[in-house]
Every structure is written in C-alpha cells, then in structure tokens.
Design a binder for these strands. Structure first.
Lengths: 159, 159
DNA sequence: AGTGCTTAGTTCGAATTCGAACAACCGGAA
DNA sequence: TTCCGGTTGTTCGAATTCGAACTAAGCACT
C-alpha cells in the first residue's frame, strides 16, 4: 500500500478537517444562540421542525421515525420528547391501529414557539452557512453529501 | 419581511438539512468504527492526530490550544486528556516558562496506536466522504466552509 | 389458543459535554 | 514590592447521548 493510499493528500486533509470542524462549530454556535434566545437546544428545535412539516397531514410522527430523522438513538428521542412534553410543547398520542406505537405531535404552544424561533434561527443559518456559497456550490455540495449519506447507510446495512 | 426572507427556499432547506444530517451521520459512523476496531472515540483519535502533527517540533501542545483546535470546552479537553493519560497514550508535561500552562504530548504507545488506527480510519473517510466528490467539488466546498468558519468566529467575537 | 420472531418504546447505567466557579499564576502599573 | 486584571487548567453539577436490557404488543405459522 502506497503512502498516498495510507494517508491523505494535503488538499484532502484540509477538506476533511475543515468539514468536521465547521460542522461542529456551526452546530455549537446555533445551539448556543437558540438556547440563549428561545430556551431551545438545537436538537429540540429540530424536533419541532420535524413535527411541523406538512409531510403527514395528521401532524403525528412515530417515535421511531422521529429518531431516524434526527439521527439519534431511540432512547435520546424518548428523553427529549419527555422534556418537550413537560414543557407543554408537544404531546404524546396513543396510536389506535398499533398498540406498540406512540405518536408525537405539536401543541399550540409548541407551534407558537417554533414560529417565534424560526426567523431568528434561519437568518443565522443564512448568514453563517448558506450565504457563504454560490447557488452552484450549494447544489454541488448537497449532491455530494447525498452520496455520502447513501454510502453511510449502505455501510451500516453491510455490517 | 417577505416570506422568502423569513423561511428558506426548497433548495436551501435541502442543502442545510443535508449538511447537518450528513455531518452527524459521518461523525457517528466513524466514532462507532473507531471504538469497535481500536477502542478510541473519534474525539480521542483527533487528539492523537493533533499531537502527532509536526506543527510544533517539540510535540508539546498546551491544553488551551488543544481545546481550541478540537472545538470543545476546556473542561472537555481536561476530561479526555485524563482518559488518555490513564491509558498511557499521552503524557502531561509541566511548562517550564509558564507555571500556568501544561503541555501534552504523545507517548510511544500513543503514537503506535495512532499509526495502527489511521489507515483504517482514513480509508473510511475516503470511501464515505472524499470519494463522493470530484476534486473541484472538494476544493469548492473547502473554500465555502472556510468562509463559514470565519463568519462564525467573527460572530463569536461580536457577541 | 400457543409458540416463537420481530418491532416499538422505555428504562437504566456509563460516558461525555458544557459552562460556571475556582485556584494558581503571570505581567504590568502604582 | 504590591496589587489587579487577565490567563491557564481543573473541578463540579447538570444535561445529554448511547447501547443494552427490558416490556409490551403485533404477526405468522401450527
């Protein structure tokens, strides 16, 4: 195995480390601002966003689907939903067809909080991330990251 | 404020959510594989990498610099260095010039473990990330993320 | 109905992170 | 020298995450 195969080129190393560091910094920054301004962690914000999506007309989302979309363990979803239920931002609804499943949906308070937090947050996402690249760069990156995602899922299923 | 300014376009929303999800998935996947194969968390691996960099001829890195490079709180750095010291992979060295500072450096065992783990890990980084994009896409993304990083640091200093 | 396999969600303990508070130390000004 | 503001690293408690074990519920096949 050549050196080139064992290690990374200068360009590759920079790309990889920049990707990791930037994603960490972004997440950290947005998390802190959401907490300071709206008392929501980034995770919690994303849960509210997911529940507000018009994807399902009922507004109900199963715990498992929620965890999968959030890229976390199911137990972390349970924990966070517990927090949000305690604060009255979401509600658990028993699924009538399947006794194992639990639905989660936004309450009025939850929807109101999301609509208050979103403009601030999205302005930040634009400023810090979206506005740093041209439309072409943006779609290029998106396509590449979709391929990355696919490979990760393949790899997971292989193992 | 128009709707376009308050929310994101379809393309933007997809780009943003793809970025966040992919970075989480990547980190999670690499962390799990490093733990399974080499008993190292991704954070710990990155600490070893940082200490192995030829950036300082002495091989010594101050805690504060380490934390800054790792994008974590200083207390998290203290914790992880404690773990690695316990395992004999790194060592603390008192700084002679400045009584407040502590240097950290790799031990022989640490260097050996890093050299064992790196090829596996880097192959994965290539497969899952680097190989999904062309050289042009890669450099474009790197440049954009550098701009993002700069803006985050500016924003941090403003607040 | 009964048996066994799979799925959904929760609970639990361990690991990790964060920020605030703290102690030790440095360096310059009075 | 002495004092004071700034820096360095650590400690502490709270919050969060993970994976494994568990419970309850469906499903298929007899």
């Amino acid at each position: 195995m050549s050196v080139e195969e064992r290690w990374l080129s200068e360009t590759q190393a920079r790309a990889w480390s920049q990707f990791i560091r930037t994603s960490q910094r972004l997440e950290q920054r947005l998390d802190r601002e959401l907490k300071a301004r709206h008392d929501l962690s980034h995770t919690q914000y994303e849960i509210l966003v997911r529940l507000a999506e018009p994807r399902t007309e009922s507004g109900n989302v199963r715990m498992t689907d929620l965890a999968a979309d959030l890229v976390t363990a199911k137990s972390a979803a349970t924990y966070q939903i517990g927090q949000l239920v305690d604060r009255g931002l979401v509600a658990r609804v028993k699924c009538p067809e399947d006794g194992r499943s639990t639905f989660v949906c936004l309450t009025e308070a939850g929807r109101a909080l999301l609509e208050r937090a979103a403009p601030d947050h999205l302005a930040r996402v634009r400023e810090l991330f979206l506005d740093t690249m041209s439309p072409a760069e943006l779609t290029g990156m998106t396509a590449a990251l979709e391929r990355t995602c696919d490979r990760i899922i393949e790899a997971r299923e292989r193992s």
